[in-house]
Design a protein around this nucleic acid. Structure first.
Lengths: 251, 251
DNA sequence: TTGCCAAATTCATCTAGACGACTAGTTATC
DNA sequence: GATAACTAGTCGTCTAGATGAATTTGGCAA
């Protein structure tokens, strides 16, 4: 065995004062061990205190490394329980006719969800432009948390022109399905016209609702939906727990 | 004015010991001030030391808050210089015939790039399946950093079956255009068949190449490209600096 | 057995201080 | 005038220690 290193899983000496931060070296080492199969998916990792001792650094330094791994999607950290190797992702198809429930059921998983918020408010400039309506005219905003097998996957915020869809709040009280509410408003079908996608870290509220760590990004999609006549039905902004899904675009 | 608070922009007292972490409260306050226009896009924010004094907390607490804002895309932190309010994003169209250069030029921006790595290696299981070839057979791997107006936007890793595209390494020495190399290999045209998108924090190397903070996520896309006959040409994995672009999917 | 409480474990936050690394501007030197 | 050396300002990393919050465990009482 070479200079104090123990490739089999023991402590490998960190290089101090050589330009590479200690926490980065710990990140790399843990990454090697996880992808090398030292710990299987879902397995529990040593505690921060143990790792700190093993690498002979302060616990804060280990924490910095673990936070990095969590953000990269390799581990999941739970307060009071420990750290675990990450697992499982859902495929989420993004097509012109994407409907959440069908999408999920196609993968033999159980869709679910609940309405978080329904309100009417004036349209801001950018939103009004996308909806093709005048600024300040009322829009109905519906926010929904969608689940897969009981785990939150996305937060969707829908914006409908109130002139045409003012009945939606009442309809949703009867039946929480947005698609059904649209049918009742005379929109039997709609399709996605354009989608913009980016990613960022979640706000405190988002990470709370999605039950996802602050370090894991959210995929943010902004979609414009139109009815068969090409009329804009709504603008939806959805935030997906990136750690739990992969968006699939077919073309 | 109420209990020591100065809504106009001065120090607002933080609530200690009430269940909300101090760094979160600082995040919120700074967010309010930035989105409220206290600081314009690109403007320099107070130093960490100044903020620490203003909020009456340790500098580390301010740092935690600023890292959060950076990850969310609101600010940009530069060592030795300071922190600045974030700006500008590029639209990146993702369609069946997406070509990087055209895509960028359409927005009156200047595309650029350089080849990072070219090598031949055996195909791993998953990759071989996607390419429709046997495991372990050689693939040509080309890694390229693509720039917009001189700023890195994405790292693309292309995987070609070596049987058909073994000449690519030599061709790229003449002309660094991948599209041109494919033409020379008898593939005048190709299109994107399916794309999978997710997001995660970047590795050290990725954040280095993309010149993007460790806290800003990368959008990761995996695309399968096929020629007009439907034969798989390559599998490309691209990592985009999420802070500098929005992916646009039209359907 | 069930339910509850207390202790132990483990991660989360905050403070305090030191030093390193990078930037930008100033001064000294050739 | 150009260049090098220095300096102040600012962010980055690391240590050390204290306290809080969430979870698990084990024992005791009903």
């Amino acid at each position: 065995m070479t200079d104090g290193g123990d490739i089999g899983g023991g402590a490998r000496k960190l290089a101090r004062g050589e330009g590479v931060a200690l926490w980065r070296q710990i990140t790399q080492q843990m990454e090697r061990e996880i992808s090398g199969g030292q710990y299987g998916p879902g397995a529990r990792l040593p505690t921060e205190a143990e790792l700190a001792e093993r690498f002979d650094v302060n616990r804060h330094t280990v924490r910095r490394a673990m936070e990095e791994l969590e953000g990269r999607g390799l581990v999941r950290i739970e307060q009071g329980r420990g750290s675990f190797v990450a697992e499982d992702v859902v495929d989420y198809r993004l097509g012109p006719r994407t409907r959440f429930s069908e999408n999920i059921r196609r993968q033999n998983r159980e869709p679910g969800g609940r309405i978080l918020r329904v309100e009417e408010m004036p349209a801001e400039a950018q939103l009004a432009d996308l909806l093709g309506m005048r600024r300040g005219r009322p829009v109905v905003v519906v926010e929904r948390l969608s689940l897969v097998d009981g785990r939150p996957l996305l937060i969707g915020t829908h914006h409908f022109p109130a002139s045409r869809f003012g009945r939606i709040p009442d309809l949703l009280k009867e039946n929480p399905s947005i698609t059904a509410a649209l049918v009742a408003c005379g929109v039997p079908d709609y399709r996605r016209k354009v989608t913009r996608i980016t990613a960022r870290l979640p706000t405190a509220e988002e990470s709370e609702l999605l039950q996802q760590s602050r370090n894991r990004p959210v995929l943010v999609s902004e979609a414009v939906n139109v009815d068969p006549a090409g009329e804009v039905v709504d603008v939806t902004i959805a935030r997906y727990a990136a750690g739990r899904m992969q968006m699939v675009v077919e073309s």
